[in-house]
Design a protein around this nucleic acid. Structure first.
Lengths: 330, 330
DNA sequence: CTGTTAGCGCCTTCAT
DNA sequence: ATGAAGGCGCTAACAG
């Protein structure tokens, strides 16, 4: 007894009006006799009618469909931001989609052929020409900027989550504790990729070093390799602080340090980024740079709205703050 | 210079054939002169044409669009499963959407009005009548069963991830360590909801108790409340093992126990479920029940395919195994 | 003020 | 073997 979708036609029949009138009432974009309007609304209520987002999308109208492009689906970071966005549009029937820029070779194709009300680029690994292609589709695009990207062509939004300034906060925090030799730990990589020197975390680290020798630990593809590298670098450089790209990496590093018989924070201070759940449960608990996810969500939706309005070529920018959540690892 | 979407019409023009032929070639559902076919394929390649999933969806065809219904977007569990599904269909241009059954009052409406190739229900809190509504849409629906649901009407898939049997494994593991008084810790709740007694974890726990007195810690809305409850219950019941609904809760519990001056595992053994990243980074590391996410993904996609085929009313079932990953918390 | 009509991009009969 | 035509559900321009 598979129920049939209730369509605009059904509403029109029940209300005794033409199909278009139904649309006009629902879109509130034309005057409709108030008595008819009542009948339509009642029919809508009784039938539980809801315009098909697919059909709307085909017509190029809002389908309440937002795409989030990520590089790691199992990270809680993106889920949290989507969750925040969802709160802001709750009840409006929004749908959030996820696409991963890794694995699927022609994921850009996929993305460009759909019709989204907004696309959030939250990946640090996406290629720049892919970003340009996405912007070129004309769909409102917002980049959660984690890198110092070049300027793209066209109209798009840019949310600076504050990673660069936040990285300075981390460095200050280390310095306040008397740390002199600060190392930077990159995320696990696939293949043998070195640290991305355009990333805001690295840039912040580098700037704050102020000419001091940099100590970078990168090209680790897994935990085992990470341990070896950390041990090697520690032998050679004797760092006393570790700026980790993510909380997860910070947790890994703490395990490695612990295995070396080193104490956190006595021997080495450790800080992560994202203030994810993990940070609460490591021992010692992890100091972490928190991105204001609720503000990211709000800014993104706001930018979507602005980008939809006029079509002049311009880049809309929002700058956010971060918060350094201090725990016992420093 | 916003690029225009390349449509089937463009391909037809370029290849010097009619639009229909283009469809026939791409869908491979009718004989087409091989020379023409070549021309079409070349035009497709040159133009980078890709059929619009939206238009296909409107026609009721596969749009390569899968929906995942969850109760907690920031959990890494769902992301991991989606990630596994993505691997299995990489390159085919699939899109994965996320909907949360909390927050959005009429999310079922939203869901039912879209047109998905498959819907995965991975929420433990979704209402049964909502599930029925979703099945009634006729879209292939697969339930990742975490509860002992009643039988729904119609045709759908059921993936038993093995939580019930896995819970028995957890209990056995406790027993093997000589634990006698095993408590069950529920997740954080909103409002004042008691533990769901139809959940497989609880059922497994209860069954394995075999008549022994149950010790349930539930109705905690946050960490503070949790600590108080754990302390209270420990005072009264002196449990020596804690079966936690998720790794996250296990981590919270370990913090609480530690604050009470208790040692894990000497005083209390702790086990979580999901084998998430957190389990690696707690101190001691957490023993956790791992669901075989890759098999869940594979089974789900398989069920989608079967459900699409014939339309007889029947329930397709898959039963999976779990693995208890033993670490130091037991 | 309201109804009719022409598409949006695609698939599928139905003719040829 | 191929092309024309209708329609999926909806919107907006065009008549009345």
């Amino acid at each position: 007894m598979m129920k049939q979708r209730v369509t605009r036609r059904d509403v029109a029949l029940r209300a005794g009006v033409s199909e278009t009138v139904v649309s006009y009432v629902l879109n509130a974009n034309r005057y409709v006799d108030s008595e008819k309007k009542e009948r339509v609304l009642r029919a809508v209520r009784e039938l539980g009618y809801f315009p098909s987002p697919v059909a709307r999308a085909l017509k190029g109208k809002d389908a309440h469909h937002v795409l989030f492009i990520v590089d790691d689906m199992s990270s809680e970071y993106f889920g949290s931001i989507i969750s925040e966005m969802e709160k802001l549009v709750a009840g409006k029937g929004f749908l959030f989609s996820l696409a991963c820029d890794r694995g699927d070779e022609n994921f850009v194709q996929t993305v460009c052929n759909w019709s989204f009300d907004g696309i959030v680029i939250g990946s640090a690994t996406i290629r720049e020409d892919d970003i340009q292609k996405i912007i070129d589709t004309g769909m409102p695009t917002v980049i959660l900027s984690m890198n110092d990207y070049p300027r793209f062509c066209g109209r798009y939004g840019l949310v600076f989550t504050g990673l660069k300034e936040g990285s300075l906060k981390i460095m200050e925090c280390f310095r306040a504790k008397g740390r002199k030799r600060i190392a930077f730990l990159d995320s696990f990589c696939i293949g043998d990729a070195p640290v991305d020197r355009t990333g805001f975390r690295y840039i912040g680290y580098k700037v704050a070093l102020n000419g001091q020798e940099e100590i970078v630990i990168d090209r680790c593809e897994d935990s085992a390799r990470l341990r070896k590298k950390i041990a090697e670098v520690y032998e050679g450089k004797h760092f006393d602080a570790l700026f980790c790209r993510t909380d997860r990496m910070a947790a890994e590093a703490m395990l490695a340090l612990s295995a070396m018989g080193l104490s956190v924070p006595d021997d080495v201070s450790v800080v992560g980024v994202n203030n994810s759940r993990i940070a609460m449960y490591t021992r010692p608990r992890l100091t972490s740079l928190a991105i204001r996810k609720d503000e990211v969500a709000r800014a993104t939706l706001q930018l979507f709205a602005l980008l939809k309005k006029n079509r002049e070529e311009e880049v809309l920018t929002v700058q956010l703050e971060t918060d350094l959540i201090e725990r016992e690892s420093v």
